[in-house]
Design a protein around this nucleic acid. Structure first.
Lengths: 132, 132
DNA sequence: GCCGTACTACGATGACTATCGTACGAGACA
DNA sequence: TGTCTCGTACGATAGTCATCGTAGTACGGC
């Protein structure tokens, strides 16, 4: 049942180099706190970032099973990339996504961990409410 | 030249009790991380929160010298209140604003400090760029 | 070369938002 | 009572955004 995840998690690692297509990313110094917060203020994108932080640093877009269409998924990943939260790289037909942890930690030490911890706490809180 | 600030910073502290008008606030348990991040993703509101954290915990709306009209200022304060970031209380004609630090620290330990630190670092970075 | 998979581009749409101006209400003070 | 200040309410407006569907591109494998 996790065959899909297993298949996609390390997809196309055999490719030694990056595809010719490359995507525009902000440089580290161009990353704005407001943009990062805006990117993470959407539940779908916060969820993506949480999975990315928990499950490894190179996940394809299709690894995520989001309750929206592919177009919308593309949109959310673009927002995350353009805000500097993730780095995206084509590998074959897949687009691999990785958290820009080093850049974010360099700019805003402790922020990413605090955000991930806050998100985890909130998720646990919501889960507890669901349990009754 | 800071007479305005001095006058407004402790305005109406003589009033012992809160006015009859009171404003709707989310309870601590109702505060959502996404809403907090969304509230802080606006430069104007991030600035308000930074001043609030640095300059005391009971500042009137008019203490802030924001480059927008009064209507817009009201709007931003409402967003901050409804997201659970600040608490607002009428005192005479003034509306006093305070960070909900205890609630936020209780829900998301370390988050507020990390955010304030991140904002301070970015402000310093921008300042350095300005100095050339 | 052909097909399937992964993702994109584009246009549309409905919702939200930051901003303003004007008009109004609530309290302090003469 | 009148007046001043602080802040609100309301309507308008221009912009952004999350979402979709459809059509299209890029790559890998047959």
């Amino acid at each position: 049942m996790n065959s899909l995840k297993a298949r996609l998690k390390g997809a196309a690692v055999t490719s030694p180099a990056v595809s010719s297509r490359d995507l525009p990313h902000p440089e580290s110094a161009e990353i704005r706190l407001e943009s990062v917060l805006h990117a993470l203020s959407d539940p779908m994108r916060l969820r993506i970032v949480r999975e990315l932080a928990a499950d490894g640093d190179e996940l394809s877009c299709s690894y995520f099973d989001l309750p929206v269409t592919k177009s919308t998924t593309t949109h959310h990943f673009r927002v995350l990339r353009e805000s500097g939260v993730i780095r995206q790289v084509y590998r074959g037909t897949a687009k691999m996504n990785g958290l820009r942890r080093d850049d974010l930690d360099g700019l805003f030490p402790g922020l990413l961990d605090a955000l991930l911890d806050a998100a985890a706490r909130q998720a646990a809180r919501v889960r507890d409410l669901g349990d009754g």
